[in-house]
Simulated assay, not measured.
Amino acid sequence: MERKSNTRVLVLLLFIAVVIGLRMLAPLSPDFKLFANFSGLGAVAIFSGSYFKNKFSGYVLPILVLLLSDLGLALMMGESYVFYPGWYYTYIAFALMVLAAQILVKKVNVANVFVATLVGVLIHWIVSDFGMWLGFDTYPKTLAGFWECLVAAIPFELKFLYGTLVYSAIMFMGFEVLKSKFPSLKQHSAIA
Score class of each variant (00 low, 15 high):
157 E>W: 02
179 K>E: 11
34 L>A: 10
62 P>L: 01
56 F>P: 01
43 A>C: 04
66 L>I: 13
7 T>R: 15
49 G>A: 03
82 V>G: 04
100 A>Q: 00
113 V>C: 07
149 C>T: 12
155 P>A: 14
89 Y>H: 08
106 K>Q: 11
97 M>V: 10
88 Y>L: 10
101 A>G: 08
168 S>E: 01
12 L>M: 11
24 M>E: 14
133 W>N: 10
43 A>K: 14
105 V>T: 02
109 N>S: 12
48 S>V: 01
154 I>K: 10
5 S>R: 08
23 R>V: 02
49 G>M: 04
15 F>D: 04
123 I>A: 01
142 T>Y: 10
102 Q>H: 05
172 F>S: 08
44 V>K: 01
155 P>D: 12
13 L>V: 14
105 V>L: 00
188 H>T: 15
85 P>L: 09
137 D>T: 12
178 L>T: 03
83 F>N: 15
27 P>R: 04
133 W>G: 02
101 A>H: 01
40 G>W: 03
75 L>N: 14
168 S>D: 09
120 G>I: 00
70 D>P: 05
174 G>L: 02
85 P>W: 06
67 L>F: 14
85 P>T: 06
74 A>Y: 14
5 S>T: 12
74 A>C: 09
115 V>K: 10
120 G>Q: 02
164 T>R: 12
13 L>A: 15
81 Y>L: 10
89 Y>Q: 04
176 E>M: 08
